[in-house]
Design a binder for these strands. Structure first.
Lengths: 316, 316
DNA sequence: TGTATTTACGTTAGTTGTTACGCAAATATA
DNA sequence: TATATTTGCGTAACAACTAACGTAAATACA
């Protein structure tokens, strides 16, 4: 049994490492078999120098996709063995040009035989398939270069979580989440005002009992967002207290909360919907625009809120 | 440009390592993204323990195809984090049973979500193909388990070298190689006798001038084997001085030398071919049998050679 | 039943990569 | 032309594995 293997793609990192170690060790045996004093770990630098006459440390690092200390370690070993040599750059004295030594060039044809045999064995081993291992590695690496593995997983997570978000009507069981979510974003940008405390803590009295509505965004049993409709007069509602837990922003939850409010306002017979906000909340303002709100007041000295410097509205 | 990539299968070892390091690093980011305090390097042990309630160090090492110090290092880290715990074995006090702790079990569902997302991304990334990367790795590993990479390369080398062996007629340019090859194997098993020296050094006089023949096995410009036909009387030849450089044994060179001798003897009108040898040279005796020789004399006190204790012959 | 061997696990040091940091030469910029 | 930044390279320390060796308990065997 081999759990690493049977876990499929999960432990692919460990598996790559294991294979790498195996191949390196086998490589040592192979060079010994050919009576060549050569270590597979130094292959990359030596191979590069066999392809290009002289190269600097940084160029090698770039060419081999290694860090430069890695290149230095290989080149030190090769220099000690006398297979390569180095000279200081004439024009640019920081540089150190590496190249094969006479001994290295002499060894090259023998090494090339080994390399050819290795290639042949690999071809025999795996290239029978159309989609071979090396081809798949190429593909994997170029895909990962386009977009990193972690951001692909992050995207996948957002999709999964986004799909599992429900927008639900007010439920007293989640009552305390309403102030919690809203305190969090208000504190981050502004200061909590008395009117915030009043409306948030006593939302039953100041929102629901007055014909308003509250919605929650829920993932599993966890509330990650809220929004509210406050009835101002017959047919006129204020969209307010819209907030999403920072850890779940970017999942389209705000949009879904907004749409739900608009829909609910329509059903309640609203003709006009407005909101007060602040220009610093650019992401939120963009969302409101996408939802169909238009800016109607710049500066807003008469507001109940100190932080309000913009009013937006939409007609239904 | 990426030389490691473009060298194809050659630098596959370095490439596996590079990918392993990349995946591990990305793994760290991924767990951080999910707000989980978990390190991908400890995945193998944790994962194994999530599949089986309790496991010992050696079992884990076997299951994960890691060395046991590797397992110990992972388990120490996990124990420090409080994700696993261990108890000394009751029956066998040498053992230490590892299992998930309450904290570890609590974290498991969250980790499983991460793992599922990772699997999904990998599937999306590569499993579109029928022959996918993981499938290829499976195949590679099972092939390498059947027969190691180095022995596959060794076999390939023998085939290549075997194919490049030429059996050639005597050429004075290679004269000194005749004693060299033969001294080497005689010394390894027996002692050089005076008659050896005479025939080997003065082969012109004692073999060729008397109607015998000498053949060489040559790879490029290097002699790696010899054989000789010594004319004993009209129609009767002795097959002698058959030797192959130890470094090139097992390539079928002896067989080709033998066949050439038989063929040459036939052309020269021989009816009978014989040889003297020693029972210790079992590999050689097997070859002679396969060539068609039959044992005719056990012990052989009348031979010119002290080491001779068997005579074989064949009729053409 | 005493002794040799095997097994389970631990420790230490080595390998081959990495990151972090520093310096001096070259280059850009005010 | 003085100063800031960039570049090329070096060193040190770290990471995650390995090999090699040691110890004590369990097991096999004479």
């Amino acid at each position: 049994m081999d759990l690493i293997k049977s876990s499929g793609s999960l432990a692919i990192g460990s598996r790559f490492r294991r294979l790498s170690e195996y191949i390196m060790k086998q490589g040592e045996e192979i060079y010994a078999l050919y009576n060549l004093d050569f270590q597979p770990r130094n292959f990359p630098v030596f191979y590069a120098l066999s392809k290009q006459e002289k190269l600097g440390i940084m160029e090698l690092a770039d060419l081999l996709q290694l860090t430069h200390p890695g290149v230095i370690q290989q080149s030190k070993a090769l220099e000690k063995q006398g297979l390569i040599e180095s000279v200081q750059g004439e024009e640019d004295k920081r540089r150190r040009w590496l190249s094969l030594s006479a001994k290295g060039r002499k060894m090259l044809p023998d090494l090339e035989k080994v390399w050819q045999d290795i290639r042949d064995v690999f071809t025999e081993l795996l290239d029978g398939e159309k989609e071979n291992l090396v081809g798949n590695l190429d593909k994997l690496e170029s895909l990962l270069q386009e977009k990193s593995f972690s951001s692909r997983v992050a995207k996948r997570r957002k999709e999964r979580l986004g799909a599992s978000v429900e927008i639900i009507d007010y439920d007293p069981a989640y009552g305390p989440d309403f102030p919690r979510i809203n305190y969090s974003w208000i504190e981050a940008y502004f200061e909590i005002e008395d009117i915030d405390r009043k409306i948030l803590e006593e939302h039953q009295k100041y929102i629901l009992d007055k014909g308003g509505m509250i919605f929650f965004a829920r993932i599993n049993d966890r509330i990650v967002g809220t929004s509210a409709l406050i009835k101002k007069e017959e047919g006129v509602y204020e969209l307010a207290k819209m907030g999403v837990d920072t850890r779940y922003q970017g999942y389209g939850i705000g949009k879904r909360l907004g749409l739900r409010c608009i829909d609910a306002a329509k059903r309640a017979g609203a003709r006009r919907l407005f909101l007060e906000s602040n220009r610093r909340l650019q992401t939120a303002l963009n969302l409101y625009k996408r939802l169909g709100f238009r800016e109607v007041v710049r500066n807003n000295p008469n507001s109940d809120y100190k932080r309000s410097d913009i009013v937006m509205e939409m007609y239904l």
